[in-house]
Write a protein that binds this DNA or RNA. Structure first.
Lengths: 148, 148
DNA sequence: GTCCGTGCAAATGGTTTGCACGACC
DNA sequence: GGTCGTGCAAACCATTTGCACGGAC
């Protein structure tokens, strides 16, 4: 799977919205821009903070609605966490492994892509029709290891 | 990793509680019994339903407290789901892959155990010290495939 | 002009917490 | 008898929803 540039991802997201007959408002465009880069796998709150500079009245509900819209269109990957805050990846909106720092909550992509055989093995073993997956590694990032 | 029998797991859990100076009340014993088998990876609500027969006044808060206690003692594995209800596995309280039916929410263990090399690769690739992991496969179980 | 999107506020729901009574050691 | 566990109810908090106004097309 090729990693698209943020500009490319932004174009793809806008095209998807247009093809669905959905409007591209200034607020939505700003959210798309942030998600197309997805630096640090932002949370809703984080997106809100960063956009309040340019859109002081923007409601957090708008961000929730737009992000959920993109999730349904498969243009953003949601990383949900039951004990905390969900994080989003719009640059690679398909399942892929992540490493997550237990201390500072940093999230990084992993380039491992040897999951295909595991998916097939799990399907064969259990009789399930496997459609998707999620793989997270938890630990300490290099910085937090130093500051232990 | 050897799969312990429910009886064996129950003994291990009770020993752990005792070694921590914690009390084994009738309520706790009943919860331990259910978790030691963990048939179907029960939810808190599910445990509550099943124990209300024998303990009509048992509070759901008690179940939450006991299960969280066991989680901190590493005697139960929590499968948290941001959009729903957490599920628990006391029979194999260490990370292992699961297959999850998107339709009926059935959860089954997978016997795949080739994750060790992936963990090491992810650590080497990202510089993280990997301490734990979680791997879920999502799809349709055999029954739900038939009733599509 | 019509319909969709936004923003505000209230609702939601699984989980957690505070507290007083009761039970285990 | 002192401490820990239980049960009830209230609190929590990220997320969702209802609704009326305003902006996109």
């Amino acid at each position: 799977m090729i990693m698209a540039s943020p500009e490319e991802r932004l174009r793809q997201m806008m095209a998807k919205l247009r093809s669905e007959g959905l409007r591209i408002t200034p607020q939505r465009l700003a959210i798309l821009r942030l998600l197309a880069a997805s630096e640090g796998h932002p949370s809703i709150e984080n997106i809100h903070e960063r956009l309040k500079v340019d859109f002081p009245t923007m409601s957090i509900a708008t961000i929730y609605k737009t992000v959920n819209l993109l999730k349904e269109l498969n243009e953003v990957l949601e990383l949900g966490f039951p004990e905390g805050v969900n994080r989003y990846d719009g640059s690679k909106p398909y399942p892929h492994p992540h490493v997550i720092c237990l201390k500072c909550k940093k999230i990084m992509d992993s380039a491992l892509n040897s999951l295909q055989p595991l998916m097939e093995a799990a399907g064969k073993e259990t009789g399930f029709l496997i459609l998707s997956h999620r793989l997270d590694f938890f630990g300490l990032c290099p910085e937090c290891q130093r500051n232990e």
